[in-house]
Design a protein around this nucleic acid. Structure first.
Lengths: 71, 71
DNA sequence: ACCATATGTCAAGTGTGCTTGTCATATGGT
DNA sequence: ACCATATGACAAGCACACTTGACATATGGT
């Protein structure tokens, strides 16, 4: 999942910690999402969109063949 | 997380199983999401939006105070 | 009555999302 | 040199997202 968080943060002059506080999550969570280590949950994605005043689709973009499966 | 899946399925005449197949997930997953037992992952939410030709925001709506916990 | 389809739910298992805590590195101010 | 801030990352732990398999109920066609 690609994301524009670094750009959007920079536009607002927010650190990862500052964004995390606005979102109500830990700094490590913001870092992990930015670096693509994992995707946010849908509720968190909504919160991120709200904080930036954008649509989820304007912030995140699924990679071509991002299917999961399981156990 | 509220969702309009039952309505959207009905409009298209799709069963839960048929939608599940289009999404590449199990029927139980579609059922659980519809009934609000859990939220879809963000990649699955994108896929659902794609299948219905809508934005995620047009299908899902976060409940008022849907914050998570701590670990 | 019988069968097929649709829906709802439970159980057990695997991997993810998020937590706190900690460490390492880089940068800028003094 | 020292300190504060910012970022990146790892570990252990808990709850959630998904899986397959199974069972129960309801509806409609024959």
């Amino acid at each position: 999942m690609k994301n524009r968080l670094p750009v959007l943060r920079a536009e607002r002059g927010w650190s990862q910690a500052a964004l995390a506080e606005r979102l109500g999550v830990s700094r490590q969570t913001v870092n992990a999402i930015e670096k693509g280590r994992y995707d946010p949950s849908l509720p968190l994605a909504f919160k991120i969109a709200e904080v930036f005043g954008l649509a989820i689709e304007d912030i995140f973009e699924p990679e071509p063949s991002e299917v999961h499966h399981a156990g």
